[in-house]
Design a protein around this nucleic acid. Structure first.
Length: 298
DNA sequence: ATGCCTATTGTGAATAGA
């Protein structure tokens, strides 16, 4: 059987130019070219999230991962540049929306299905120009992609910004629960929720991702009524990380942290079938320091 | 291990990441 990857290789260098500080939309010409697995018919939907640490540097890995896993929706974080290769994703059946900025941040949503509505800013701070938020409606589900601020080092305005961003997110998430639209928030939360979500808690004690305020703010999101998809299905499992430092052979020793999450509104939590971390891309050449997390909803 | 790598910008070395 012929490989679609062979067709794609010549396209790797092609980049779609977006507005410098803007938003980029595209519609796939042939949305049926990637046919979802027959086991995922009807209302079933597979959503994945992956901090790629530069979409340009990771394009080959993302394309091969898409071909193998065929998610209905893929959320990308840390695009790291104004150019977004929408045409390349279009050529493999994914329409997209991206919010980008120079050098840093950047989030995008790829979808096999129509992306119905879009919001690109998190309410609560008109001065905030970071490209960290993207809200879409896909197949009747509100799909929110976030790249939550890192916040290091603690004791600086970066940490203040992180906590303020989390408070704004909490307000937004409370509002979504008051609507009739099932909602999933996925992405790089930059939060280590509990001790079991890192290899060695002691080594993260002074880190913004593990501060008591950070963890309390994350628990406040759950207290609204949202469910951490991974923990719902794997309440006591250790060693399931989504990020490993590039240095000190962190991945080889599985010294990582679980910071990429999916939070589900109650109506989606009851539809959750699986939530897995796919470590394969982290084993490949020139990987991101994060690896994808995938949920299947009935 | 307070940056051991990686990436962007831009063509040096600084900044950011987590």
């Amino acid at each position: 059987m012929s490989s679609r990857r062979d067709l794609l290789l010549p396209l790797y260098h092609v980049l779609f130019v977006c507005h410098p500080v803007g938003i980029c939309f595209s519609t796939a010409h042939s949305p049926g070219s990637n046919v979802p697995y027959s086991s995922r018919e009807g209302a079933a939907i597979r959503i994945a999230s992956w901090n790629v640490n530069s979409v340009r540097a990771r394009l080959p890995l993302v394309l091969s991962w898409l071909e193998l896993n065929q998610p209905d929706v893929l959320l990308l974080q840390e695009l790291k540049g104004t150019d977004f290769p929408a045409d390349v994703f279009e050529s493999v059946g994914y329409q997209s929306a991206a919010v980008t900025q120079k050098s840093y941040n950047g989030v995008a949503v790829l979808s096999l299905h129509p992306i119905e509505t879009i919001t690109t800013t998190l309410a609560g701070d008109e001065q905030d120009s970071h490209a960290r938020f993207l809200e879409a409606i896909i197949k009747g589900v509100r799909v929110v992609n976030i790249y939550l601020p890192n916040g290091n080092p603690i004791g600086t305005d970066k940490f203040t910004y992180k906590l303020a961003w989390m408070a704004r997110l909490e307000a937004q998430m409370a509002g979504w629960l008051a609507t009739s639209i099932p909602t999933v928030i996925g992405g790089d939360f930059n939060v280590i929720p509990e001790d079991i979500d890192c290899h060695k808690p002691a080594s993260w004690l002074r880190d913004a991702l593990f501060q008591p305020e950070t963890r309390a703010a994350y628990r406040a999101l759950l207290a609204l009524g949202y469910t951490d998809a991974f923990r719902q299905l794997h309440p006591d499992e250790t060693g399931q990380f989504t990020f490993w430092d590039y240095f000190r052979q962190s991945f080889e020793h599985n010294r990582g942290i679980r910071i990429d999450h999916f939070l589900l509104s109650p109506d989606l939590a009851s539809r959750l079938e699986s939530c897995t971390v796919d470590r394969t891309p982290r084993t490949q050449e020139r990987p991101s320091d994060h690896t994808p997390i995938v949920i299947d909803l009935r």
